[in-house]
């Protein structure tokens, strides 16, 4: 029992991230509304961001800003005192990418709405099958 608890404590954040990823993926596969799919995509990307951020943590370490580190005087810094800055940097990039993807996805969704007056996938498919296209 104690071993199980140790495994849980050492991994639970990764498990949470993976479950979050599953939720996002499920929304993208099972939902028919385009906006819900876009939200699912965002959850999926957020899960990966949290996954990377988890890897930056270190027990007993502080935020990655050197205290009293003004003007190129960084002597006597111990790496164990500060968190790993690299995953934060990477995920700053990934956040921006996911925001940009969201913007493009919403713009495309607006265009879809112009063409079909609907964001429901099955209705759009029916309209495509019927060969109609009302262009505004």
């Amino acid at each position: 029992m104690e071993e199980l608890a140790a495994v849980f404590v050492a991994r639970y954040n990764y498990w949470g991230v993976i479950i979050l990823m599953g939720i996002g993926l499920y929304a993208m596969i099972a939902k028919t509304n385009m906006v819900k799919k876009i939200i699912g995509m965002n959850i999926f990307q957020t899960a990966i961001i949290l996954f990377y951020i988890s890897t930056a943590a270190k027990y007993g370490a502080s935020i990655p800003i050197i205290a009293h580190g003004h003007g190129a005087q960084g002597h006597g810094i111990r790496a164990a005192d500060y968190m790993n800055p690299l995953p934060h940097v990477l995920m700053l990039t990934a956040i921006v990418v996911s925001v940009a993807t969201l913007g493009v996805a919403l713009a495309l969704a607006v265009r879809v709405y112009w063409n079909y007056d609907s964001l429901e996938e099955d209705e759009i498919l029916n309209q495509i099958k019927a060969g109609q296209l009302n262009r505004k």
Binding site: A56, I66, G69, A72, L86
Partner: peptide, 29 residues
């Protein structure tokens, strides 16, 4: 989680933490 000896926290990141201030004079790593 939080293991400070894991590869992710030791291989590349130590260099940044120890040298960034000397290299760039920026305390925010």
């Amino acid at each position: 989680w939080g293991d400070s000896d894991s590869p992710a926290s030791t291989h590349v990141s130590d260099y940044y933490i120890e040298n960034a201030v000397n290299d760039t004079a920026v305390p925010n790593l």
